[in-house]
């Protein structure tokens, strides 16, 4: 009659509870392992690089002699690349996401486009480099310039921005949009005043992830023709350029110990840039959230 045998339940109870505790410790261990790796990485970089990371390092050009070498050229190059990447990637990425989520009819063609954008996010960055070389450098005749490099990086991170922005827009509850439309708002007013403000934190998070990736990319810039040694500042967006990750790569392949330390100093600079980028996003997000409330 009874299908639950109390005796069996009691016998199994002990084992189940043990598994429960075990699962907790396994996941704790995994997290600890990752943390350890991160700490080792940071300690190594800082102990190697701090000796060279000073004002001199930030304000001097590259040099064949390690004690004179600085990162000014690549730093300015990377910042100027970001000036190209940020507006282009954000405008095109968020614009595409808005169109796909809010305007496009949900048919096989839209689905086909969405699938392809998701696949693009997985394409190796060097392929984007080749695309940039063919289209921006050669066909459009931009040469190996900051503009060509920036456009290539923008293309590279575009799929990530589109996909994360789409998800953020999709996560805005429908009932908010209905409330707005029910008051006689047009679709654009609803997107502008209700959907985008609610989706903004999510869009920002995705965009920062994407831009962090752009600032650290090396391969596509090498293909596009970035310089490895500059001792001048670019005077405009059509000039040749170096970038921090390329400089780091260039230093690490030198045999001398001093250049290894310079590379570590370059990595510290890069980490600082990433932290600034992330902090700006967090600050912006909190500010916008507060404004909305």
């Amino acid at each position: 009659m009874k299908q639950m045998n109390r005796e069996v339940v009691t016998n199994k109870m002990n084992r189940r509870l043990k598994m429960n505790t075990l699962a907790k410790w396994i996941f704790f261990g995994i997290t600890l392992l990752i943390l350890c790796i991160l700490v080792i990485l940071l300690v190594r970089i800082f102990s190697q690089g701090m000796a060279y990371f000073d004002w001199h390092f930030l304000t001097n050009f590259a040099s064949r002699r390690a004690e004179n070498a600085g990162i000014l050229g690549p730093l300015v190059g990377s910042l100027m690349l970001m000036v190209v990447v940020i507006p282009i990637a954000l405008i095109l990425g968020i614009g595409t996401a808005i169109y796909l989520e809010e305007y496009a009819k949900k048919n096989w063609f839209t689905h086909f486009i969405e699938t392809n954008i998701q696949n693009l996010a997985g394409v190796p960055s060097i392929v984007f480099g080749l695309l940039g070389l063919t289209i921006f450098v050669n066909v459009f005749g931009m040469g190996p310039s900051i503009l060509a490099g920036g456009l290539t990086l923008a293309l590279l991170v575009l799929p990530i921005i589109v996909v994360t922005a789409q998800e953020a827009i999709r996560a805005v509850p429908n009932h908010l949009a209905h409330a707005s439309l029910g008051l006689g708002a047009t679709k654009w007013q609803t997107i502008q005043k209700v959907i985008l403000p609610s989706a903004l934190p999510g869009i920002l998070t995705g965009s920062i992830l994407a831009l962090s990736r752009a600032i650290g990319e090396t391969a596509p810039l090498i293909v596009v023709g970035a310089l490895v040694f500059v001792n001048y500042l670019p005077s405009g967006f059509m000039d040749g350029f170096a970038a921090i990750p390329i400089q780091i790569y260039n230093w690490t392949i030198r045999p001398q110990e001093e250049f290894q330390q310079l590379a570590a100093a370059g990595i510290i600079l890069m980490l600082i840039l990433l932290i600034v980028l992330n902090a700006t996003a967090v600050w912006l997000r909190n500010k916008l959230n507060r404004k909305q409330q």
Binding site: P173, H175, L176, H178, A179, S180, G182, V194, S198, Q292, Q293
Partner: peptide, 9 residues
């Protein structure tokens, strides 16, 4: 609407 749906403002 059925469920109260004020804006988060």
């Amino acid at each position: 609407f059925q469920k109260p749906n004020p804006f988060p403002k």
